[in-house]
């Protein structure tokens, strides 16, 4: 066999293994995203109270993760993904704030009918229905409203720790702060929720 043929064979084998490795990475990313996407959507939806916008934010986060962090180890993906998503949520709120200011300046309504009144939406202890599904939905609605009303950092810490199940270190990476800050925000969030939701919710 000539030297040229040998080089070609080695190159083909290398390409084959590189292709296999890339395919494997794609499958791992697919599994990761499929596992995380629905929880991420609900977390984003609770933050911005709009499903369509939340879907867009989750897709943007998935694209950014795949583009920029596909080479990172699998353990790093969850905090990185949520960091991207939280940044997206923050940018969304900033854009909304600017939009609202502009709309106010032009004398137009800024609410789009999406304002909510925590008092009006608070659960009525006497208004329980016999339907269990409805009760669950109402409980979830109360929880969503209470979580949405938390200060931003407390909200992030609570959702990442409780809903996504990230540990303190992972939450710190996702939030871009120290582990001590995560503990403080989380503790305050839980106490605040306990006060807001009251005993009847438990």
């Amino acid at each position: 066999m000539s030297a040229c043929a040998c080089e070609f064979a080695v190159s083909s084998i290398r390409e084959h293994f590189t292709g296999t490795k890339e395919l494997q990475r794609e499958q791992e990313l697919n599994r990761f995203l499929a596992d995380v996407e629905r929880r991420a959507l609900r977390i984003a939806e609770i933050s911005i109270r709009d499903r369509d916008e939340a879907l867009d934010l989750v897709q943007e986060a998935m694209i950014k993760l795949v583009r920029n962090y596909a080479d990172r180890s699998n353990n790093e993906w969850t905090p990185l993904f949520y960091r991207i998503l939280q940044n997206g949520v923050r940018d969304w709120h900033r854009r909304q704030a600017v939009r609202n200011r502009v709309m106010v300046w032009f004398g137009r309504s800024t609410s789009d009918g999406r304002d909510y009144d925590p008092v009006a939406a608070a659960p009525d202890p006497a208004g329980r229905t016999p339907d269990e599904t409805l009760q669950t939905e109402q409980a979830m609605e109360s929880l969503q409203l209470a979580v949405a009303a938390l200060p931003r950092r407390q909200k992030e810490a609570f959702m990442l720790r409780t809903f996504e199940g990230l540990n303190v270190a992972g939450t710190a990476v996702a939030m871009g702060c120290s582990e001590g800050s995560v503990k403080t925000h989380y503790s305050r969030a839980v106490h605040s929720l306990r006060d807001t939701l009251g005993e009847h919710w438990q």
Partner: peptide, 28 residues
């Protein structure tokens, strides 16, 4: 409650998430 709400997501939303994921993976 959160897990129940995740499990209760409708088919259309799941389908949109699925499409979004495949579009993201196409970047590779």
């Amino acid at each position: 409650l959160f897990d129940q709400s995740v499990d209760g997501l409708d088919a259309e939303t799941r389908s949109r998430l699925n499409r979004g994921r495949h579009e993201a993976l196409a970047q590779l």
